[in-house]
Design a protein around this nucleic acid. Structure first.
Lengths: 247, 247
DNA sequence: ATCTTGATTGAATGCTCATTCAGTGGATGA
DNA sequence: TCATCCACTGAATGAGCATTCAATCAAGAT
């Protein structure tokens, strides 16, 4: 768990040597700042193994978001990092493992965010549901680049057990936690009700992600959070207030 | 609009000559029966152009669902229909157009189902919302094969404007219709509320589809419909009843 | 200054696949 | 029966791409 988050020295190196790859929509221009700050590392020819791997994974995300999974070549990933073709095979066994590690990286990142969101709202189930919801739409988690990659993998999930296995266990775990949270908010202790509420809220999260990916004009993350708050207020009026509708 | 539904003679030919391709989960074994019934067409060497195209598109759906978009080859599509390699390029200009036509086929099918669902519930907005919801989870529309294909395209949507353009206009139209339906159910005539409700219900549909694709164990279409009904009852208690919770 | 270790390069290799097209064959009409 | 018209076949072609690896280079250790 957390192989990409394990105290690795994430100094302020600029891992994006090739700026051509960074032309995503302006709104998200500040994500992953840790790998962008100016630094002499720009011209550094070699980098410690783990840092280079991280950079290549980020470049993979860029490529998938910009060109789609089918049009993502090893050479593109390397070029996106300003390096030469052979580099990817040197750090990852094969394209297959590169993609698997990319998915794992995203899953890990999400998992960390989940844990943080739960920890920051101490013991109060209602607060935890709210902060989990907000976490789902934080720019660092929910942005066009990352969502595009998630959906690219979803499309392949059925055919590549590796992909679904990687997320299945986490998903089950999340559902379980949600059930517990909802369970303690429904006073009737109705298991089925808590189960259904959990599925619904998680489905709502997913559906809103999808809309943010496909209809960014109609939709944004603030609107998404408000929709979820609205839903919570409908489901559990004693525990949640309707969000501010002024906007 | 509707190029695949335009009075083309959809006789009871068995378009699936190669049964190897049909091993999806047993539950969905009865979809697209029109192209499976036993008939001498099984051994027919030639078929009218439009019918062959239809068969190849269905084979494309099979391939994408089973192997993923990245691993779908022209030869696989041909083999899935029991035909030889050159056939696909004979009926479609290129792989690109084959995929675009496949997406258009699904979009069309969905669009037809949408219209039917609206027509069958005469003028009553509440009934129409219900039947649209049920339509979304009918086996012919919502099954692992088809959802897998939708998601494969979603993953590529950002990078291929062709794909998103194809659906964008329809989506906007659906959203518009939903706003009107909700608008006439909210007595306060609050536009914003109707807008948000529309987005939420459509997001819920999408999120439930996603769960049906990725977690078929936890999830099924009946559960999905009930979740939506539950949501409708929460949002508009005067117009909808809570679904039967006995199951 | 030299050695050692490991990262990086990029030309070369060989495989996979979309696409082509000359040839085959079945159906329909004369 | 023959001719015409298409649907269809599948070997051949060549472009595109992942992967390899010998050579190069950088940085730290001695």
């Amino acid at each position: 768990m957390g192989i990409f988050h394990c105290g690795m020295p994430q100094s302020d190196l600029n891992l994006h040597q090739n700026s051509v790859n960074r032309d995503t929509t302006a709104k998200e221009s500040s994500e992953k700042d840790l790998v962008r700050t100016q630094s002499p590392a720009n011209s550094q020819r070699t980098l410690p193994r783990e840092l280079r791997r991280l950079q290549l994974i980020e470049s993979t995300i860029d490529c998938i978001a910009k060109r789609g999974l089918t049009d993502t070549r090893m050479a593109d990933v390397a070029a996106g990092a300003g390096l030469s073709v052979g580099i990817v095979n040197f750090h990852f066994d094969s394209k297959t493992t590169l993609l698997a590690e990319t998915l794992r990286y995203l899953a890990d990142e999400y998992h960390q965010a989940w844990i943080e969101a739960r920890n920051e709202s101490d013991e109060d189930p209602a607060k935890q549901l709210l902060s989990l919801t907000r976490m789902n739409f934080e720019p660092r988690i929910c942005n066009q680049r990352r969502i595009a990659v998630w959906y690219a993998f979803f499309g392949e999930a059925r055919s590549r057990p590796t992909y679904s296995n990687l997320c299945q266990q986490l998903d089950d775990d999340y559902l379980d936690q949600m059930r517990t949270l909802f369970g303690s908010l429904f006073d009737d202790g109705n298991e089925r009700r808590a189960h259904r509420a959990s599925l619904m809220l998680m489905a709502l999260w997913d559906g809103l992600w999808q809309n943010i990916l496909l209809n960014p004009d109609v939709f944004n993350t603030d609107e998404a959070v408000r929709a979820c708050e609205h839903w919570l207020a409908c489901m559990l009026p004693e525990h949640f207030k309707q969000p501010d509708n002024s906007a």
